[in-house]
Amino acid sequence: MLEVNDLEVRYGAIRAVRGVSLKADTGELVAILGANGAGKSSTLMCIAGALKAAGGSIRLDGQDVTSANPEKMVRAGVATVPETRDVFPDLTVTENLTLGSYTRRSDRAGVTEDRERMLALFPRLAERAAQPAGTLSGGEQQMLVIARAMMSRPKVLLLDEPSLGLAPVIVDQIFEMIRTLKQSGLTIVLVEQNARKALSVADRAYVMRLGKIAASGTAAEIGAATDLSALYLGG
């Protein structure tokens, strides 16, 4: 489904990602773990088309999509939830969801149906449908951005630290939802600091360190690795 080869991302002289290769098969949930500044978000944003690749390639279903622009990636079936949790604060919850379905806006019936489904899945959002998204709590905003990403009916979902700054109860809810999404057959790339949580839902995992892949394997292998904390904290 998604195949990244030898990817490089630079910010001026800073080499944030240095030759990262990873892949996610159809229906697979792949976690990317690593300390702060390891280059996880840069990798994800580059796949999403929001950052240009300085080298390497990204393939989706065998098609080369390296350095495609973000709107093209969405049309190709890749939806992204960035770690900055970007709701449009002055737009209502409903309007935020409407934008999520921008690429299939002509399919009005389907969009309405999906919106109803998302609101049924997140009753807290349904209660606040007409409220500006900026007034939602952090957890509600996270639910909204995930729901919004799902409105494009993606094949691949890129999730960047969905648990960031949320209370444990909310984190559990979010992970429950990620599990549900995975069961529906969606391919998911999940970036997380919360390794234990991430490994509990992931099929496979990569550990990043200083812009490179330091370890990879099944979730069980990575979870059992004795040097996990060393890799992880070694930043």
Binding site: M73, V74, D86, F88, P89, L91, E95, L99, Y102, S152
Partner: peptide, 20 residues
């Protein structure tokens, strides 16, 4: 709605498929 969204966060709007 897309124009209002683009006015607050252009990159995010593009990541939802809104053509710049």
């Amino acid at each position: 709605i897309a124009m209002r969204a683009a006015a607050t966060n252009f990159t995010m709007a593009r990541m939802l498929g809104v053509p710049a």
